[in-house]
Design a protein around this nucleic acid. Structure first.
Lengths: 338, 338
DNA sequence: CTGAAAGCGCTAACAG
DNA sequence: CTGTTAGCGCTTTCAG
């Protein structure tokens, strides 16, 4: 069965192609009767309008790009749901691109976004990204952009993030209150604003409470799975061991749990653990894991709404907004007082 | 900064637009020198070719659609990684659509796929889907399709799945061997082939081993989160309680764990639990959860390779292949012998 | 080796 | 209310 086009449809009905076009877009210029006839024939002949021909004319792709470091992370999965929920409502299509936390990947993906393929871009930057030029270039091309969760600081681009400093601060206080003398913060990047803010909040609490004997309580965990595991293992079995950990992502907390099992370190007695995460399994881990839970779906949803505001009012150059949604500390056994 | 097009680029260089086009696609018709000049000017002026104009001419979108029930599931997250890995290599773009396990959503998404927007479709059907007409229609339009994980039986369409019957069978044997007298299988759908096969395998083992006093050991769990929870709770606290559970997806096992915590049912002493899942947290749950783990990344990867085989050789009408990859039973404490 | 010209399928002036 | 027509940006014969 060959794909039929508008011209053929028009011929079939003995009307002009323009009439068909207008009827299909429900123009008021077309009489109810012809409209009806056209619609019927279209569905009978299984006609579907070619989206790319329209894109070419209208310079609108009805498509947005979502660029994220990883999908196999509970936060991003939920965020995608939020994004999709509004894109769908707007009749938009969603292209997903993964940077795998590599700056080079992110750069080339972003580079592709100014081709007209997409009407807007949602991005959560990779942990390696320290140079925002690729993003600024996109902005200069006048493509609407919104950061979600992981933004690049100081760029005058809309973003939706959580109260990172405060969450870091409160999570540290929580550990300290429950008896930690030597908490550390496991970060995944020294450049990621979101991590740094959380780490700063964390640090502030230690200073304020005069807690911690470890010179630098913010530890960057990077490298492969293996490397990170051995790095954490060294940390937990070294001479100066922390008695509390705030992990910045799912994976790091899992590592810590695994290593504690393996080495027999008892959580929360010897080590208290909390994580920035939306993991659904947190309450059924051994022991149940304290989380600082971000409103992932909402972050995705609101970021997308912001994006559409820019896409739809592109002419008037909508002002950029930076929205901060609160995360919630959910206390569980992993940080219980000793 | 306005987006520049090929015509402008050509003018800038005092060559014809045809020459530019050819140079950019590295045609042998163009001399090395002009090619070089054109490439340089293109990158200097930040020219990017408009993908939709090309799509219109070539009737190729360089885009595939992935239709899946849900992203917030470890299996699908990993599968997306596999899909993306090969799409990227081929220079293809990936559109993601979520059916949210609703047939109506799936149907309208699939309906959109014959518009020329995509060159091929990867799909894992919703748990509600019992009628394959929407998919057959797509096939008739000559759009390459490949099922991954959840296929529709008997359609003569390529698919990549796991050894479902066998896994169901082996998981039941495992429970029985470790002492279960009354195991049940928690399914999410009575129509999903994949669930039914697993359930059939499960049933076969019970019959073969003459085990189980519950009339129908295959239980369909459906409805909202809440409804499923209360359904499971009723099951676990009723008069005829199972002493073993095989859950067909992440979520059901989590429910079981949560309810056991709440009601004080001890795993594995009073109830043994295993799940079809790729959950990374399985080993650190309380207790560590036995899983039947699917090769999710591989399923995604191979399904996509199959898809490209069809996309690339569309003319010769590649024969459909049904590939079966094995899942692995990973025994953990949740099913330990009493 | 380079260029002119005919569309891909659709939309939107503009005429009638 | 309906039709004619000129492109959107690019690729690809076909001539030169």
């Amino acid at each position: 069965m060959k794909k039929m086009n508008m011209k053929e449809l028009a011929k079939e009905l003995n009307v002009s192609i323009a009439t068909v076009s207008k009827a299909l877009r429900d123009s008021h210029e077309i009489s109810g009767l012809t409209k009806k006839k056209i619609l019927e024939m279209a569905s009978k002949l299984n006609y579907t309008t070619n989206p790319y021909a329209g894109s070419l004319r209208n310079k609108k792709s009805k498509t947005i790009a979502v660029i994220l470091p990883e999908v196999a992370d509970s936060f991003f999965s939920l965020a995608i749901n939020g994004i999709q929920s509004v894109a769908e409502k707007k009749g938009y299509h969603v292209l997903i691109y993964l940077s795998h936390e590599k700056y080079s990947n992110e750069k080339s993906i972003v580079g592709e976004c100014n081709s007209g393929r997409v009407d807007g871009v949602l991005i959560s930057i990779s942990s390696e990204t320290t140079n925002p030029d690729h993003i600024l270039k996109l902005q200069k091309e006048n493509i609407p952009i919104v950061f979600f969760d992981r933004n690049f600081e100081g760029l005058n681009i809309s973003s939706v993030v959580t109260n990172d400093f405060e969450s870091g601060y409160l999570s540290a206080l929580h550990l300290i209150k429950n008896g930690c003398q030597n908490p550390v913060f496991l970060s995944i990047s020294s450049s990621l604003g979101i991590c740094n803010k959380r780490a700063e909040g964390f640090r502030s609490a230690l200073i304020e409470k005069k807690t911690g004997r470890i010179k630098n309580p913010v530890i960057i965990c990077s490298g492969t799975y293996q490397e990170i595991n051995s790095q954490i293992k060294k940390l937990l079995t070294g001479k100066i061991r922390p008695d509390g950990i705030i992990a910045s992502v799912d994976r790091l907390a899992m590592s810590v749990y695994l290593i504690c099992r393996e080495t027999g370190i008892s959580i929360p007695n010897e080590l208290k653990v909390a994580v920035f995460s939306t993991m659904e399994t947190a309450p059924i881990l051994n022991p149940p894991l304290t989380t600082i839970t971000q409103p992932a779906f909402e972050i995705g949803r609101i970021a997308t709404e912001l994006l559409f505001k820019k896409i739809e009012k592109k002419a008037f150059s909508v002002v950029d907004e930076n929205i901060i949604l609160p995360s919630f500390l959910i206390e569980r056994t992993s940080t219980a007082a000793s």
